[in-house]
């Protein structure tokens, strides 16, 4: 599997990462090499094998739907880049 410039641009967009044009060739090379390493998986027949998502087969715990946390909005927003009236600010989305 060898990735083209356009593939890297598409993946970077999906991942919301800005990548400079100069860096694209090295990303294309390195990512292609990693995919080549990963390709070794295809040498094994895995028909009928159950995919393993988690090391312990226990199911996820459930709990009562009660409020357990305190509201710490002001505390948590102290480290935010930009807030106003308890809201996080981002560039205008709706004109």
């Amino acid at each position: 599997m060898s990735l083209e410039k356009s593939d890297v641009e598409k993946i970077a967009h999906l991942a919301r990462l800005s990548i400079s044009d100069d860096d694209i060739p090295s990303y294309a090379d390195n990512l292609s090499n990693i995919l080549q390493l990963v390709e070794q998986m295809s040498s094994v027949d895995t028909n009928g094998i159950t995919p393993m998502a988690h090391p312990l087969s226990e199911s996820q715990r459930l709990r009562e739907d009660n409020v357990t946390e305190l509201n710490q909005r002001d505390h948590f927003q102290q480290i935010a880049p930009a807030t106003k009236n308890g809201l996080y600010l981002v560039p205008k989305v709706i004109e």
Partner: peptide, 25 residues
């Protein structure tokens, strides 16, 4: 980027599910 690619539409079974099956083995 590798993770985004492996999880993207059309590649999910070939990469992510395959890897989880190998993990089982």
């Amino acid at each position: 980027m590798i993770g985004t690619y492996a999880l993207s539409s059309g590649f999910y079974d070939a990469y992510y599910i395959k890897a989880q099956k190998i993990r089982q083995l």
